[in-house]
Write a protein that binds this DNA or RNA. Structure first.
Lengths: 229, 229
DNA sequence: TAGGCCTCTCAACTAACTCTCAGCTTTCTT
DNA sequence: AAGAAAGCTGAGAGTTAGTTGAGAGGCCTA
């Protein structure tokens, strides 16, 4: 299967680069545009499979761009990016037809997860549930549910994202810096102590119902989740 | 089974796009026309299974278009779209046969439901009632009746639509934005607090007669209805 | 025109979550 | 064996998300 083509439309170069780098690494084929006009040009040159679109662009807003794109016959789903405080009025009517939105500042892992969720839903008509099955831990992404050896666990949003990141990268040590960069919002500026805290929270919830410690510490390096012992 | 072909006839590009995107995602094969003349041309090219027709078009009214379509031998049922303040006389006489009408602004979920209702009625001669059977909750769409574990519940129109949307997407978290975009009329521009209010109303009616909480909150994500626990 | 249902808004309240910090334990180094 | 570094965790402050009651206003029916 060819690489999925993603078009990133955002006027802030920082965000654009952050997304481009991160998504390229995640295996996507990336194109970027800094405003609505460029976006319209870009889609005609190479039709993307999905579009990441900032709702507030210098030349036009999300609705106008969407309209122009749709008018050019583009049917690719759109993941809208909005500022936290835009979220009441600006997004209504956006999550139609497989589209979705994400508020800035987001976490990189969340962007990838959303893209995959959208593509899954739009590609296959009747989407089978998206399940990450990694041995002892099974995550149902549609229902946002986690089970350990068959038993359900209730997790807070951050605990969920952290565990998902660990489980999606099994048998690999992830440094605290990597975890911070992927799981926390990109403008988070506390220290890595928070990762330790949340690993602790997870262990407190997971280990009592598991037959073995699930998240292991690699001292001086980071944390690892192993599919089997 | 091949995809159902829907022809959308409306002069407002916004509405056309909204409908096209939404219905395409719902699994229909979409064609569009901006006026009566285009509509007549379109139906001859590819015979639609159902037509969504705005009653007030720039070049001719609903009666004329219908007459022309019928004259070309098209028997597909028509779902008329009318403005809220259009008086009764604009509609009377139109909804003969399997036809029906819907007032603007409508909700997207409602459009899909109506289309399916019409197709059900016109396709199978002896219409068996359309029942959504999702575990504890059973919805009879023809009778607009809801039962929880066999017991009947009276719901207001909005409560009904909200519950239907949740029940038609079981075991999947639906965000407040998705719910707002599908269940509420497309021009609604209040905030998502209303979804919370209506979930609260539903719970007050459903939970007392149910053996388990039916609508669960996924904090930071949305709401979910699970077929079984 | 009054009464009743319905929709929607608002605000108080509650529960849950995020993050920081400090003191503790474990592991490594010399 | 002692000290340093790294990691763990409980407590708590501050914030945010979700729930619910009260009520304004619209619309329909009697």
């Amino acid at each position: 299967m060819a690489k999925t083509r993603v078009l990133i439309v955002d006027d802030e170069p920082n965000i654009r680069d952050l997304l481009a780098t991160s998504l390229r690494f995640a295996g996507f084929d990336i194109q970027t545009a800094a405003n609505g006009a460029q976006a319209v040009t870009a889609v005609t040159e190479s039709e993307p499979d999905i579009i990441l679109l900032d709702v507030m662009l210098p030349d036009m807003n999300g609705f106008s761009v969407t309209k122009k794109l749709r008018a050019s016959g583009i049917q690719a789903p759109i993941l809208f990016l909005t500022a936290r405080d835009d979220t009441e009025d600006k997004i209504t009517g956006l999550t139609v037809g497989g589209d979705d939105y994400l508020t800035k500042p987001f976490s990189l892992d969340e962007v990838v997860a959303r893209i995959q969720a959208i593509l899954r839903r739009t590609k296959t008509a009747d989407a089978e549930p998206s399940i990450i099955d990694a041995g002892a831990i099974v995550i149902n992404q549609d229902a946002h549910e986690v089970s350990v050896e068959g038993k359900n666990v209730e997790l807070s949003p951050t605990e969920y994202k952290l565990l998902r990141f660990l489980v999606m990268n099994p048998d690999r040590v992830l440094t605290k810096a990597q975890i911070l960069d992927h799981v926390w919002e990109y403008d988070f500026n506390g220290d890595m102590g928070i990762v330790e805290s949340y690993v602790s929270y997870l262990r407190k919830k997971l280990d009592p119902i598991s037959s073995r410690p699930l998240i292991q510490t690699k001292r001086g390096v980071g944390y690892i989740y192993k599919k089997q012992d």
